[in-house]
Design a protein around this nucleic acid. Sequence first.
DNA 1: ATTGGCACTCGGTAACATCGAGTGCCAACG
DNA 2: CGTTGGCACTCGATGTTACCGAGTGCCAAT
Lengths: 335, 335
Amino acid sequence: MLDDRKAAILRAVVQEYIETAQPVGSGRIADADGVDVSSATIRNEMATLETEGYLVQPHTSAGRIPTEKGYRYFVDTIGSPGALRGDHARQVSSFFRAAHGEIEEMLEATSRLLSGITDWTGVVVPPPSTETPLRSIHLVQLAPQHVLAVSVYGDGSIDKHTLDVDVEVTEAQVASASAHLSAQMIGTIRGSEPRSVTSSGDATTDRIAASVLEALDASNEPAAPTDVFVGGASRVASAFDAVETVQAVLHVLEQQLVVVTLLRDVVDRGLQVAIGSETGMETLANAALVVAPYTVDGERAGAIGVLGPARMDYREAMAAVAAVSNRLETRLIEG
Amino acid sequence: MLDDRKAAILRAVVQEYIETAQPVGSGRIADADGVDVSSATIRNEMATLETEGYLVQPHTSAGRIPTEKGYRYFVDTIGSPGALRGDHARQVSSFFRAAHGEIEEMLEATSRLLSGITDWTGVVVPPPSTETPLRSIHLVQLAPQHVLAVSVYGDGSIDKHTLDVDVEVTEAQVASASAHLSAQMIGTIRGSEPRSVTSSGDATTDRIAASVLEALDASNEPAAPTDVFVGGASRVASAFDAVETVQAVLHVLEQQLVVVTLLRDVVDRGLQVAIGSETGMETLANAALVVAPYTVDGERAGAIGVLGPARMDYREAMAAVAAVSNRLETRLIEG
DNA sequence: ATTGGCACTCGGTAACATCGAGTGCCAACG
DNA sequence: CGTTGGCACTCGATGTTACCGAGTGCCAAT
């Protein structure tokens, strides 16, 4: 589509703009770069690139700025995946070497890691907890009319549900209900628990059991709050100069569901990078999202990403995201 | 300290500045307010107020702006606690009427509620989970060498710890360890679990039990990550005009431990409001924090707060924080 | 003690000139 | 014919100057 020289010039412009955040003129390209033609020629080429929609001028007599299409071309023609800078690679390694403890904390720390490496905002969507079997369900009485139901699933995740029982119950009844539910529910897949269990013979026990099922059912229904971990949100402030943009982007990041959907969308479209309107969100017109899915047991598990301005360092961000996603996979598989 | 008229003028200046965010001149005060003297007199008074440190001029020939001391006087002399605006009161009521589910989600939603009412950022520090007895400890085997320990405490909180056992264990051994630990640990106060339990006679069981104790111990040691809920962080963007300030404040909000300490400090000093340097953080020089502790069972449980610019509407924020803290208390007591 | 009056200050805004980075175009060149 | 040096031109950025007006401090009169 673009001949070699145009491509080289375009790439140089994008590169330069990413570094300086200033409109790039023909002179700058002629000086520094591998392209060995005069600035006049470059001007001509740039004019063409502009009519073809890869560049724009903020105003006549200013340098050029890449359009969304320009950035897109740039990332599409980044040849090698690119390696992470040495110190960053070491940072990632030592992070995962030291990683321990519960998965939630680890993923949250991962989002901060991403942010630290790229200087922008890191996002981590945890693996969905669907398709995992119930390993244990266990009731604990907290007060005469309060019972806590704890469900443990095969992937190590836990749900808890506080139940307000409308009659006073005894510890024995709770234990009985606990055993009763265990017997009938263990092994069922999360989200597809039975709506009812056979009667135990005791009315109160049945009542408790019913409450548990109800609570489980309720927590599955309405777009259950999927967690997302956002690290380094404060970087948004330096990513955009308009305060309103900063506010708007932060607002997006506050909405967990939106962020999850956003990442998932991008991943599902098979993209590694979504630039501006490609994100599908007007708010992110000047932003870009670099993502990578990660898989566990061959299944698409979750996704990680970096959110920054459209003029971010894509090479670095892509390398970071790829490296972290890799290490995360092995970490999750090993458990 | 200040005579009536000076006080009235100071209060008027602060009020006006909070509303307009513009330096306030003597004319504006003379016009609008209950103070019935000429602008010249007001000018004289303002000059005094300035030498006494309540006001400053951004430059000669500009109006006055309150200093920290000025704001402090203002909040100290807010007479009535002030009632919440009708619609906001209704909003709070309906929020707590509808509140249900787990406490964590509820508190998070509360932080958003605070943010929604005040237009600034809401912060909620949950009750500490200390001093609460272990009600149940329960081991679940996830894989041959992986065991999940679930502890349930009297306040309904849950801890989980994943254990990597270095030998393969059987389900029976896990069950035995589970029972063994239950027998010896239930009733112990969180954080002061025993360092060891009597031997069960079976080596593997003992080994599992030891792992659990170790994990519990580790999670108590180093400034365990206290959760904080921050709602409406994006409002920070509209609270300050300097981008660096926005970034710095957001950065503070990202550090859970810092936020907890901040709130606790302020509450411990018996303050309802901390203005600028009173927060003890340079970063928050232009910010103010309105807080309220809440108690459960007569014990100081946690705190809620609103973080905004120093020129925030203190009446409204104080009313909001008071109302929410009240309702939260009753909600938590009722369970 | 209060106040009207007044000279004064100084940020903000507008009008205007200047500078220079960068452009588009064109004629000349290999 | 593609490339290039040259050149007139554009226009944002920067600086200068002038002016306006909100607001001040001070003082003399009440």
